[in-house]
Design a protein around this nucleic acid. Structure first.
Length: 822
RNA sequence: GCGAGAGUGGUGGAACGGCAGACACGCUAGACUCAGGAUCUAGUGGGCAUUACGCCUGUGGGAGUUCAAAUCUCCCCUCUCGCACCA
């Protein structure tokens, strides 16, 4: 008898699928579904994380196609980025050659996994026909006032030799290389994502199909807080210091103000005072500290007096102004009011420098004495020492004081976000050039649309250190001002690659469009993406940026969608021996090895079976073996009876009620596989249901053997192969053909289970006494609760146990269980 | 500190108020074999029994709700992830 030979089978069907352009998107269908896996960076070879995310997406795509959906399931390449440039420096290979070679290799691996992509729609972000539109979108942002240039303190990675967005700094290190990030002052391009802060926050509520933790992370990142801004006039000057506070109710408790070291007034206020030298030294010292040190827990609060005082806008009291290292320039206005009695940080700072503590909020039923306090009282209470606001509860006082500030023109309510504008300039070569020309007369001028793309010159030299290769390329640099025709200089910074990946899912809907980034009709037919799948590491970065882009495109009338991804599945990691697979740990298993040793179907099956998709999974050689054995078992089973099934087909199929046990097992599995795959995304239990069906078939056929009713057997084996199709597509295709069926198994409709096959004449119920299982009964199905009780009490065993005890109550769950309380 | 999630056999994991441990790995025994890391059959949470399809116990710990709790509520412990001087 034939053996299961995955290598031959898989090669054969992969060729068949590709030759027949099998997975081309059906654009005409009524029911549309967009399944998308985060596209990869072409780093070289696929790793297990890739294999996992693509397998999950592929199962869904195949399942949904069989359920009658028109499925868009595309793949592409997030192909700009630093590794290509580093490879160029190290190995003297051009980033483009390196990138395209990797793409070829990885695409080959994807094909070897049997993934059902519509390759006609492939996009590559480093190709001019793609980045032309990335540039076009930049100009769209520019025209809408959402892209601007600003000189600011920015994050700089010394190893990558480029600036980074706030989102790309993790624990003070570069997200890519981990190098400690420094701060430097540069003029850079920013996208005004803060304009969308409120909508990005608000619309998180619409994303019920996203994991809670991702929504929470975004919410924290946006970091909205509501309060008041208050202007304190500087004494003996016409300057003002603006602060932001969430607790305007504590305004009368302000005993000093603190400015961030970077605050423009810090040095200015000290100018000419005896404190000037000390302030300058302090500012200098603080600014030099790295971000890591400044936010570390051990950071000791320090500050110096500027020599200046300012006036409380309501009480008129004069308080000193200090510069402190615990105030961040990047949040609020870079200045805070010090209320030691009601803010723990201020309390510590005040104690250290002997600043007064004034209680203005009284806790219910208690009196706070400043000299007795060991920590700040930060909760709600009733106001005191607050002039005409005395006696107000703090909530009401917040409104009253804010209103009062607004009246006398020294403040008002204010909402502040933690989110900063997105810094998108990169001082590197391998990215989409920012389409701008600088003109001495006109300033920064947009490159006209018809001149796009601004192509990356190929003939550049790479070297470590110094400036970006583009800035050394004379021909690239030189440009004519599009506005006045005068001499201009081309922008040499390229865009953050996260821009390229913020809109690629639009391009898939219309990937060959030469006239626009995508046609709104095409994209509206598919977007938003119904199911997006990818790693949790993008919870903020890519997912926030993509949401921002979608909203801007929406506002520009280019899409009806307001959110890009309806449902999000954050798949878990692939570990081995309890640790993340990594070269340094030597615990890497590559998809190539698995395909070579067991075949793609076995690898896919194991990855799906070992854990639910959102959980981490531990790679287990034995587990893979188990899946391989299962597929062999299926192969043998079908192969053994294939001839019989083919005869049945030739003879015509008589429907019948024979072999109820067998039909029930298979239809029960079908029901479970349908639910687990389509609704719950629990592929592990879907597969175990198929395994149970196979076990049932083996055990039934082992007893009954060749005497089994042929038509029923045919039905059961066909259902088995159909169920297996999304998970093990090659084997299913092979078995489908061995059963003598025409066409491809992947073009069949997903079968509906036969409810009548599940209905049983008799059921086994559990009999509990006081909640403990005391026996089992076989009773006719569908009995009423009373009848169940009758049957239970009539059972000799139960009767014996009940003897001499009084039945107080009976709870019956039809066809399942009865509980007797005695 | 704040937020989210998780704690179930030797292992991965099932059970979305109703039989805890499905399915798989591993292990034990047997069958078939020249042989097997092949295949098939049976067993497998722990304890006590093994005359009996018997009894006790068991889902991190403790309380509670319920006829019934791994599941719901409260408190505690441990772990993972995210955020963290954000005014």
């Amino acid at each position: 008898m034939a053996e299961y030979t995955p290598r031959e089978i898989e090669a054969k069907w992969q060729e068949f699928w590709l030759d027949n352009n099998f997975y081309r998107t059906d654009e005409q269908g009524e029911k549309k579904y967009y399944v998308l896996e985060m596209f990869p960076y072409p780093s070289g070879r696929l790793h297990m994380g890739h294999m996992r995310v693509y397998t999950i997406g592929d199962v869904l795509a195949r399942f949904l196609r069989m359920r009658g959906y028109s499925v868009l399931h595309p793949m592409g390449w997030d192909a700009f980025g630093l590794p290509a440039e580093n490879a160029a420096i190290q190995h003297q290979v051009h980033p483009a050659d390196w990138t395209y070679a990797n793409i070829e290799a990885m695409k080959k691996q994807q094909k070897a996994l049997g993934l059902s992509y519509d390759w006609d729609r492939e996009v590559t972000t480093c190709a001019p026909d793609y980045y032309r539109w990335t540039q076009w979108l930049f100009l769209l942002f520019f025209k809408r006032g959402l892209a601007y240039r600003k000189k600011a303190a920015v994050n700089w990675c010394p190893r990558c030799e480029t600036v980074l967005a706030n989102e790309q700094v993790e624990d003070g290190g570069c997200w890519r290389c981990g190098e400690e990030v420094t701060t430097t002052e540069l003029e850079q391009w920013f996208l005004r994502i803060t304009d969308y802060a409120e909508r990005l926050l608000e619309d998180l509520k619409l994303l019920s199909g996203w994991p809670e933790r991702v929504r929470v992370m975004q919410e924290n990142w946006i970091g909205k807080s509501t309060g008041a801004q208050i202007r304190f006039p500087v004494s003996r000057s016409n300057l003002q210091i603006e602060v932001f506070t969430t607790r305007p109710d504590t305004l009368y408790g302000v005993t000093y103000l603190v400015l961030a070291a970077e605050h423009p007034l810090a040095v200015e206020l000290a100018q000419g005072t005896p404190q000037e030298t000390e302030v300058r030294a302090f500012v200098e010292k603080t600014r030099k500290l790295s971000e890591v040190t400044r936010v570390s827990a051990e950071m000791v609060k320090e500050g110096v007096f500027t020599g200046a005082f300012c006036k409380n806008p309501l009480s008129g009291e004069e308080v000193p102004v200090l510069v402190g290292n615990y105030v961040l320039m990047g949040y609020g206005s870079g200045a805070v009011m010090g209320v030691p009695a009601h803010d723990q940080r201020d309390f510590e700072f005040a104690k250290k420098y002997g600043l007064p503590v004034r209680v203005v909020i009284s806790p219910p039923g208690a009196i706070l004495r400043p000299e007795a306090m060991t920590e700040a009282y930060e909760d709600e209470g009733v106001l005191l020492n607050s002039g005409r606001f005395d006696g107000l509860p703090s909530t009401a006082a917040r409104e009253a004081i804010t209103a009062s500030l607004a009246e006398n023109g020294s403040g008002g309510s204010k909402v502040t976000y933690r989110l900063r504008d997105w810094l998108i300039s990169r001082q590197r070569y391998w990215g989409a050039p920012i389409p701008v020309i600088y003109c001495a007369a006109c300033g920064p001028v947009a490159v006209p649309e018809e001149d796009l793309p601004v192509e990356l010159p190929r003939d550049v030299t790479f070297q470590r250190g110094g400036q970006s290769p583009l800035s050394r390329h004379a021909a690239f640099l030189q440009a004519e001002c599009p506005a006045c025709g005068g001499p201009g200089r081309r922008e040499t910074d390229t865009m953050d690659t996260f821009i390229c990946s913020s809109w690629y899912y639009f391009r898939y809907t219309d990937s060959k469009n030469e006239f626009e980034p995508f046609s709104p009709e095409q994209s509206d037919a598919w977007l938003p993406v119904d199911q997006y799948i990818g790693g949790i590491e993008h919870a903020i970065l890519h997912l926030l940026y993509s949401r921002f882009f979608t909203k801007v495109l929406h506002d520009a009338g280019l899409t009806g969608a307001t959110e890009p991804f309806t449902r999000l599945l954050a798949q878990g990691m692939v570990n081995k021996d309890g640790a993340k697979m990594s070269k340094s740990k030597g615990n890497v298993v590559s998809p190539d090895e698995i395909i070579a040793q067991y075949g793609a179907d076995t690898g896919r099956l194991f990855i799906l079976f070992a854990a639910p998709p959102e959980k981490d999974l531990d790679w287990s050689e034995r587990g893979v073996d188990g899946c391989f054995r299962f597929l062999k078992r299926v192969f043998r089973l079908v192969e053994r009876y294939a001839a019989l099934v083919r005869e049945q087909a030739a003879a015509g199929r008589p429907a019948g009620a024979e072999e109820i046990t067998l039909r029930r097992a298979v239809h029960a599995a079908l029901k479970k596989v349908t639910e687990d795959t389509g609704e719950r995304f629990n592929f592990n239990t879907a597969i175990s249901a198929i395994m149970e069906a196979v076990n049932a078939l083996y055990s039934y056929l082992g007893e009954k053997g060749a005497g089994v009713h042929g038509a029923v057997l045919a039905e059961c084996l066909e259902l088995l192969v159909l169920m297996l199709a999304p998970f093990a597509p090659h084997l299913a295709e092979e078995l489908w053909s061995r059963l003598g069926k025409g066409g491809s198994v992947h073009l069949q409709s997903w079968p509906a289970h036969d409810a009548s096959a599940l209905a049983a004449a008799e059921v086994e119920i559990v009999v509990q006494i006081n909640g403990k299982v005391r026996g089992r009964l076989i009773i006719p199905a569908g009995l009423t609760q009373e009848a169940m009780l009758e049957q239970a009490v009539a059972d000799s065993r139960i009767a014996a146990l009940l003897d001499g005890r009084q039945l107080l109550k009976a709870v019956a769950v039809p066809d399942k269980l009865i509980n007797l309380v005695v």
